[in-house]
Amino acid sequence: MSTLDVTVATIGRAHGLRGEVALILRTDQPEERLQNGTAFDVVVAGRPRTLTVGRIRRQQDRWYLSFDEVADRTDAEALRGVDLVIAVDAEQEADEDPEAWYPSQLKGLVVRHVDGRELGTVMGVEHYPAQDLLVVRTLDRRRVQLPLVEQLVPEVDLEAGVVIADPPGGLFDSLPEDEQGPEPETSAPSTRTKG
C-alpha cells in the first residue's frame, strides 16, 4: 500500500487557559481526519512529540481542539504554526476523486508555462490564510512563489509529472546580472560652507 502525507490543519493561536488551540484547516474532510484519539507525530522546537486529539469543538466556522498531552496555554502557544499531518492510502484517495492532488504529490514536478517553456521545479506548497503558494525553484536557482489559484495554475497533471502555469508577467523573469540598482546621479560638486 502506498501512502501520501496529508496536512490536515495548521495549529493557530492558543484559545483559553486550558491548552485549547484554534485550527487553520487544510483539508476538505475535517470530520473524517480530525477525530478523538487521532495521534499526530510532530516536531516542536526541534523535538519529536506526539499530540493526541482529546476534544474537538466547532464555533461558527472555526475549529478548536485540545490535545491529551497539552494542559495549559503556554504549552498550546508553543504549538502555533505546527502542521498536523497524517498518512493516507494513496489508491483509496485517488479512487474517491481522481482529479484531486495533495501538496506532497507536487514536490519535484516540472513547472511549464502555458506556452510550453520550462519555468522550474516545484519545491513545495506554503499555506497562508488568503491562499496557498506554489514554491518554484527556477532554472536560474531563484525561489518564486506563485499563488496556487486556478487562473495562474490551470492544470496539474500528476501522471505526466507537470504543473502548467500562467503566471503574471515578470514573475519568472530573471534580472540581468549587471543590474544592481540605480546608478548614482552625477551633479555639480557641492560647495561647503565653514561654520
Score class of each variant (00 low, 15 high):
residue 104 S to T: 14
residue 5 D to M: 05
residue 174 S to E: 08
residue 109 L to A: 06
residue 4 L to C: 03
residue 134 L to N: 02
residue 183 E to Y: 08
residue 164 I to R: 15
residue 30 P to D: 12
residue 148 L to P: 02
residue 173 D to N: 10
residue 192 R to I: 02
residue 155 E to Q: 15
residue 176 P to E: 06
residue 185 E to A: 15
residue 3 T to N: 12
residue 194 K to T: 05
residue 173 D to Y: 00
residue 187 S to A: 14
residue 141 R to K: 11
residue 32 E to I: 02
residue 68 D to G: 05
residue 52 T to M: 04
residue 112 R to W: 00
residue 68 D to Q: 14
residue 131 Q to G: 03
residue 174 S to A: 12
residue 18 R to V: 01
residue 1 M to Q: 09
residue 78 A to C: 03
residue 72 D to A: 09
residue 25 L to Q: 01
residue 124 G to N: 12
residue 156 V to F: 13
residue 112 R to G: 01
residue 46 G to W: 02
residue 4 L to Y: 07
residue 95 D to S: 09
residue 186 T to A: 12
residue 111 V to I: 01
residue 14 A to T: 07
residue 35 Q to W: 09
residue 185 E to H: 09
residue 119 L to T: 04
residue 86 I to Y: 06
residue 115 D to I: 00
residue 190 S to Y: 07
residue 171 L to Q: 06
residue 137 R to Q: 14
residue 80 R to H: 09
residue 161 G to W: 11
residue 180 Q to Y: 03
residue 95 D to R: 15
residue 122 V to P: 02
residue 140 D to G: 03
residue 164 I to L: 15
residue 73 R to K: 14
residue 108 G to S: 04
residue 72 D to Y: 06
residue 191 T to C: 00
residue 127 H to C: 05
residue 96 E to M: 09
residue 129 P to G: 06
residue 81 G to V: 00
residue 17 L to Y: 08
residue 83 D to Y: 01
residue 163 V to H: 13
residue 126 E to Q: 15
residue 130 A to L: 11
residue 85 V to T: 15
residue 194 K to L: 12
residue 51 L to M: 03
residue 106 L to G: 08
residue 103 P to Y: 09
residue 113 H to G: 05
residue 7 T to S: 11
residue 158 L to Y: 11
residue 93 E to K: 11
residue 105 Q to H: 08
residue 141 R to L: 06
residue 28 D to W: 11
residue 144 V to H: 08
residue 138 T to C: 04
residue 144 V to A: 13
residue 19 G to I: 02
residue 177 E to Q: 11
residue 146 L to G: 08
residue 137 R to C: 01
residue 193 T to Q: 13
residue 18 R to A: 13
residue 149 V to M: 12
residue 126 E to L: 13
residue 3 T to E: 14
residue 159 E to H: 14
residue 31 E to K: 15
residue 84 L to K: 09
residue 112 R to S: 05
residue 19 G to Q: 06
residue 168 P to E: 14
residue 79 L to Q: 05
residue 173 D to V: 01
